[in-house]
């Protein structure tokens, strides 16, 4: 479905990604974990074509590493950035409408679907994005990407700064997305929801993958946890 091979990325002189390799299967939730600054977000950005990179990025059997960001998105890769990037001056509804790639060819997810599943967003549909709470913004940014009908979605730190109850809701939402057939790359610093909902997990350190396995295997491996995750 989706795979990255020998991915390298640079910011100026510094070599951020040093040969990252991982894959995500259809309908699978895969977590990419690691401390701050190990290159998790850069991996997402490189996949979206937002930072210069070398290596191979394959999606549905096709190399997409050299495509422009909007082409990559149109091929079916969705990206929810860490900072959520809600359009603050636009209403909730306008934010969602911008998720659609074209008005003529609506995707599987319509405004009605989103509103049915998230009544909270419907209640606030005419409120400016900038006035939403953190949880609402996170919901909105994920739904906005879903409106673009992705087959694979990368969600960067969806539980950051959320109340415990909201974290749980977010976990349920991501599980539901995967059940609908969309592959998910869950990028997290903490283990909050990753252990509960992931099918497989990768841990990153110093711009490389240092662990790969199931949540069960991860739990048995205390060294990885100590060395690469705990602060």
């Amino acid at each position: 479905m989706f795979s990255v091979n020998n991915l390298h990325a640079y910011y100026g002189q510094s070599h951020i990604l040093r040969g990252v390799e991982f894959s995500v299967g259809p309908g699978e939730i895969v977590s990419l974990l690691g401390r701050n600054g190990v290159g998790r977000s850069t991996t997402c950005k490189a996949i979206m074509g937002l930072v210069k990179h070398k290596g191979s990025i394959k999606f549905k059997g096709e190399e997409v590493g050299r495509d422009k960001p909007h082409i990559i998105a149109r091929k079916g890769i969705g990206y929810v950035p860490e900072d959520r990037s809600i359009f603050p001056t636009l209403t909730v509804q306008q934010n969602l409408e911008l998720g659609m790639k074209s008005v003529k060819k609506p995707g599987k997810w319509t405004l009605d679907d989103v509103y049915r599943q998230f009544p909270r967003l419907q209640e606030r549909c005419n409120v400016c994005g900038g006035h939403l709470s953190g949880g609402e913004q996170q919901m909105l940014t994920i739904c906005r990407s879903l409106m673009g009908d992705p087959d694979f979605i990368m969600i960067d730190e969806p539980t950051e700064g959320l109340a415990p109850q909201m974290v749980e809701t977010m976990g349920e939402l991501i599980a539901r997305i995967a059940k609908s057939g969309i592959s998910v790359l869950l990028v997290e610093q903490k283990l909050t929801i990753a252990l509960a909902i992931s099918h497989r997990m990768y841990v990153m350190g110093h711009g490389q993958i240092v662990f790969e396995g199931t949540p069960g295997e991860f739990e048995k491996n205390q060294t990885v946890r100590k060395e690469w995750l705990e602060v």
Partner: peptide
């Protein structure tokens, strides 16, 4: 218009508009 919406959104988050599949350049 939709292009107007894209312009307004790009004023604050051009990169995000781009990764939503709009040809920002």
């Amino acid at each position: 218009t939709r292009i107007g919406l894209i312009i307004q959104a790009s004023l604050t988050h051009a990169e995000m508009v781009n990764v939503l599949g709009h040809n920002v350049p």
